[in-house]
């Protein structure tokens, strides 16, 4: 197997004593991020409905990419089964609200519980597989779940479920924003905690990590459950927002590929990369869809191919390393990775 995560860089170890300048930039960065979040929170009162709709979709995708980042980017396990957690979260809300007439937040808890429990149980079995085998096994899980849910009466079978309508875009937007921020803060914590370093060690060399005292099975399963939690909550918000779900729609494997593309495009194993990746790719897709109604998917495909060829390590790496090399950065990427 080719090493999945070799390309990612770790946060630079602070060299020597953190100087006053370092502390100042960090404080500045923190303030800038807080302001950015505040500005985003204010968006529904400034922007129009179209923008708010787009915001909800981007924030949910950012959460999904961030959730994938935990298991795929940090731990190095390329999950193609995260759409299962999304589907479980969506169906948790739908079943609670439609079949039992429970409030939305109970449904969210149900979806969260289903997703996390599923990740815990399945994780114990599938996280022993590595590389392509893990990827394909989780893909298989996603397909099995679609087929099983299509046959479940409580989930409305093939037809799906129609949820009660709630016309409050602002509420959905703020919920999605809160979740995306929470996911990003969790990843930020991962990037500088003992637990996160354990995950990175697993990604870099699992056997080496175990010999040095990392309880690899436990760490991997917890990472998978964490990833599932955010993904399931995003699924729950989506279901109530869109008001209609069916198995093929929410257990969609293509959605899973999207999460990966956004995380990898942004920079797997980085803190802000997946969010930036989700924003840029969604915006590109939106603009393409508006300008070239028919050819949007063609250009989306071309963007993926070109991005993988010329910037295989994602935006986070590009921003940090392009420097004075300029366009030669892209050529050098091709040089290192070609046959």
């Amino acid at each position: 197997m080719k090493r999945a995560g070799a390309a990612q860089r770790l946060p630079e170890p602070p060299e020597g004593e953190p100087g006053a300048r370092g502390a100042a930039t960090r404080a500045a960065r923190r303030t800038a991020l807080a302001l950015a979040v505040a500005a985003l929170a204010a968006l529904p009162w400034i922007g129009n409905t179209v923008l708010v709709q787009f915001g909800i979709s981007v924030l949910l995708l950012a959460t999904l990419a961030q959730g994938w980042n935990i298991i795929g980017g940090y731990t190095g396990y390329p999950s193609f089964g995260n759409s299962v957690f999304y589907g479980l979260g969506a169906y948790g809300v739908a079943i609670a609200m439609v079949q039992y007439e429970l409030p939305f937040w109970v449904g969210m808890l149900l979806g969260l519980g289903l997703g996390v429990a599923f990740a815990g149980l399945l994780g114990l079995a599938v996280l022993r597989l590595k590389g392509h085998h893990f990827a394909i096994c989780t893909l298989g899980l996603a397909l099995v779940m679609t087929a099983i849910v299509s046959n479940l009466e409580i989930a409305g079978g093939n037809i799906g479920l129609v949820l009660p309508l709630l016309r409050s875009e602002v509420l959905f937007y703020e919920l999605a924003l809160g979740l995306a921020v929470l996911a990003t803060l969790t990843v930020l914590w991962l990037s500088r905690s003992r637990f996160g370093l354990g995950l990175i060690a697993i990604r870099e060399n699992e056997e080496g990590a175990a010999v040095m005292g990392v309880n690899t099975t436990f760490y991997k399963v917890i990472a998978f459950m964490l990833s599932a939690a955010f993904t399931a909550l995003a699924g729950g918000i989506y279901a109530y927002h869109i008001t209609y779900i069916d198995p093929v729609g929410v257990f969609d494997v293509v959605l899973n590929v999207k999460m990966i593309i956004m995380a990898v495009f942004g920079g797997p194993g980085s803190v802000l990369g997946p969010v930036v990746g989700a924003l840029i790719l969604s915006a590109t897709a939106e603009v393409l869809a508006a300008r070239l109604t028919g050819a949007a998917s063609l250009f989306f495909g071309i963007v993926i191919v070109v991005a993988v060829v010329f910037m295989p390590r994602g935006i986070a790496h590009l921003v940090r390393h392009i420097g004075p090399a300029g366009w030669r950065y892209f050529i050098d990427n091709v040089r290192t990775h070609r046959l």
Binding site: A4, I302, V309
Partner: peptide, 17 residues
Amino acid sequence: NLVIRGPMFNTLLITFG
């Protein structure tokens, strides 16, 4: 051939593209 020595995700992604 241009990306084959890169990380595993990349060949998955590019073939998806």
